[in-house]
Design a protein around this nucleic acid. Structure first.
Length: 557
RNA sequence: UGCCCGAUGGUGUAAUGGUAGCACAAAUGGUUUUGGUCCAUUCAGUCAAGGUUCGAAUCCUUGUCGGGCAACCA
């Protein structure tokens, strides 16, 4: 554990934790929890919370619980539980024995509600949902008390018991905390704490006909687990008085809730509702579409857990609602990928090149370094012959001044394999497109003076691969910030996915899904889970930084 | 016309009454068998007005702007 007297905090939450450690507020314990509702997939915004929750426990020698906040059976599914477990593991965190379900506490919660009723601090209300809303008032107008508010305790108890046994229809009764209908905080105007739902619960089955509301359940979950610091996002700030009220009235163990700002990323939407809409409307191919900001989507795209954790460390924790540039995430990604990705050669937009001084049938070999950033990654042998493919963009018949690649009568280095000099070209007479580039090959020993290096694959040895070129999903920085009446989906990028058939070096035939690769001079890629040896499929994770694209004024992305 | 929270370069974030720093982005140059990486340099900031103080990003007041709160969702 970190020495409690040594200040190592980098943000206000850790300052609070360190202060609590100093004063012995929780006997030196640090217990946090990550409490997802299993009603959707985790996204990069959750990663920020996960890194904070688990990271805080790790830093201060405490524990972090993974707890499913499954208090609403209508929305929740087993499928999501499994996906969430997989994603948190993948991110690199370990909850040990501490996997919990809020639904396992339903009996205790019920007892606590009974206790509140007995204390005259809760009552069964007969108001319909519409009346409930009407009585609550609005921020600028006081609420008024429910006619049920002074129902005798015995009657409340009887009704609550019968609610539990399933005697009533949904919406017929609700249990409310008795607080203050004139509070300026709407959440304190006798909030509902239990409602009737005749729904089968994915974790506890048909045992219950009543389910606790978030505000009642969450503080109890934290209390039961002896959580010390209950970290959540800013929108729960106005709920904190209620969190405290319930624990105070029950006079039980009292964790402290601390709020921080959620993550917003440029060119991204983050809400579950909107992500669901993208999936349902077919704008993407499922929750794990590589364009999605979901953890499973990012994973399929080729993001590494390491990069995401580093990103979460870099953005910091504050109460200011910021919009983080997705370029920072991409920076963290490239930073990690550069260190670990195996270099390979792939030609995404091939054009044939004939090396006229290499006889037909002759096969040459060369040695290529797998990763210049990691000597341990070794080398590999590559074969080539008279005909190779090069990138169409690497040749220009009439090159501008700063173009360092191949052009008529010019020489360039062939990555790992000597040099070529362009001696001629053939064009399609109808379209004018270059069909064949002719040239001569020079061995690497010759040390030709050139300004550029291009990548290539051998026509005879290369294999075909499907390459999915992903780009950002939206065309504007903040898709949520649209004109009144406009649809945020109008800002979707119609070119967020382009599929091409590429020529790739044969070593790529058996690439394992997800393993980071760099297609040299192009970008980082990884094999898709759908990839097979017969039909390899690669996803573009992110481009390399491309200063030529800037010079040439191309979109580059 | 309610209550709560917030405001530091283009972006994100430090400085907790004592030299406004870091990262990303952008720009320039160097190295280079990836126009990648790496290295160097540059650009650029305390929302406003008062007050307290020898001294204010920091404390106080007022204002401005932004966000949140009116599910029997979480």
């Amino acid at each position: 554990m970190t020495d409690a007297t040594e200040k190592t905090a980098t943000h206000f939450i850790h300052e609070i934790v360190e202060e609590d450690l100093r004063t012995g507020k929780y006997d030196g314990r640090v217990v946090t929890r990550f409490p997802p509702e299993p009603n959707g997939y985790l996204h990069i915004g959750h990663a920020k919370a996960i890194c904070l929750d688990f990271g805080t426990a790790l830093k201060y020698g405490g524990t972090c619980h993974l707890r499913f906040d499954d208090t609403n059976p209508e929305a929740e599914e087993e499928e999501y539980v499994n996906a969430i477990i997989e994603d948190v593991k993948w991110l690199g965190f370990d909850w040990g024995e501490h996997l919990y379900y809020a639904s396992d506490y339903f009996e205790k919660m019920y007892d606590y509600a009974v206790e509140l009723i007995k204390k005259g601090k809760a009552y069964v209300c007969t108001l319909s949902p519409e009346e409930f809303k009407e009585y609550r008032g609005i921020p600028t107008r006081l609420g008024k008390e429910s006619p049920s508010r002074n129902r005798p305790v015995e009657e409340n108890l009887d009704l609550f018991t019968r609610m539990k046994s399933g005697e009533f229809k949904e919406g017929e009764y609700v249990v409310r905390a008795k607080i203050d209908m004139s509070s300026p905080n709407l959440h304190m105007r006798d909030p509902a704490i239990y409602r009737i739902k005749h729904a089968r619960h994915p974790h506890v089955g048909d045992t219950w006909h009543i389910y606790p509301m978030y505000d009642f359940a969450h503080c109890l979950e934290d209390s039961i687990e002896h959580v010390t610091h209950s970290l959540c996002t800013l929108e729960f700030e106005v709920h904190r008085p209620l969190y405290d009220w319930i624990l105070d009235e029950l006079d039980i163990y009292h964790p402290q809730q601390i709020e921080f700002a959620r993550l917003n990323l440029t060119y991204t939407v983050m809400s579950k509702r909107r992500l669901l809409e993208l999936v349902k409307d077919g704008h993407v191919n499922g929750w794990d579409d590589p364009r999605m900001p979901t953890l499973c989507g990012l994973r399929r795209r080729g993001y590494t857990a390491d990069a995401i954790r580093h990103f979460c460390d870099t953005i910091g924790i504050t109460k200011y609602e910021s919009l983080t540039d997705v370029a920072l995430l991409e920076h963290c990604l490239r930073d990690h990928l550069n260190k670990v990705a195996m270099r390979r050669m792939a030609v995404l937009n091939p054009v044939r090149m004939i090396l006229e001084n290499i006889p037909e049938g002759e096969v040459k070999t060369c040695t290529a370094v797998n990763n210049p950033e990691d000597e341990g990654a070794g080398t590999r042998e590559l074969k080539f012959g008279r005909e190779i493919y090069i990138e169409r963009d690497d040749f220009m018949e009439e090159p501008p001044s700063k173009f360092f690649r191949l052009a008529p009568d010019r020489s360039v280095r062939l990555r790992n394999a000597g040099f070529v000099t362009c001696t001629g070209l053939e064009k399609d007479p109808d379209t004018g497109a270059v069909t064949v580039i002719r040239g001569t090959w020079t061995a690497p020993e010759e040390k030709v003076k050139v300004k550029g290096t291009i990548h290539w694959v051998s026509s005879e040895h290369a294999i075909d691969a499907e390459v999915r070129i992903y780009d950002r999903l939206f065309t504007v920085e903040n898709p949520m910030d649209v004109e009144e009446g406009a649809d945020w989906k109008d800002t979707l990028n119609p070119e967020s996915l382009k599929v091409v058939t590429a020529k790739v070096e044969p070593t790529l035939a058996d690439a394992a899904a997800g393993t980071p690769l760099q297609f040299e001079r192009i970008g980082y890629f990884c094999a898709d889970p759908d990839s097979t040896a017969v039909k390899p499929i690669f996803n573009r994770t992110v481009t390399l930084r491309d200063s030529w694209a800037k010079i040439a004024g191309k979109p580059g992305k």
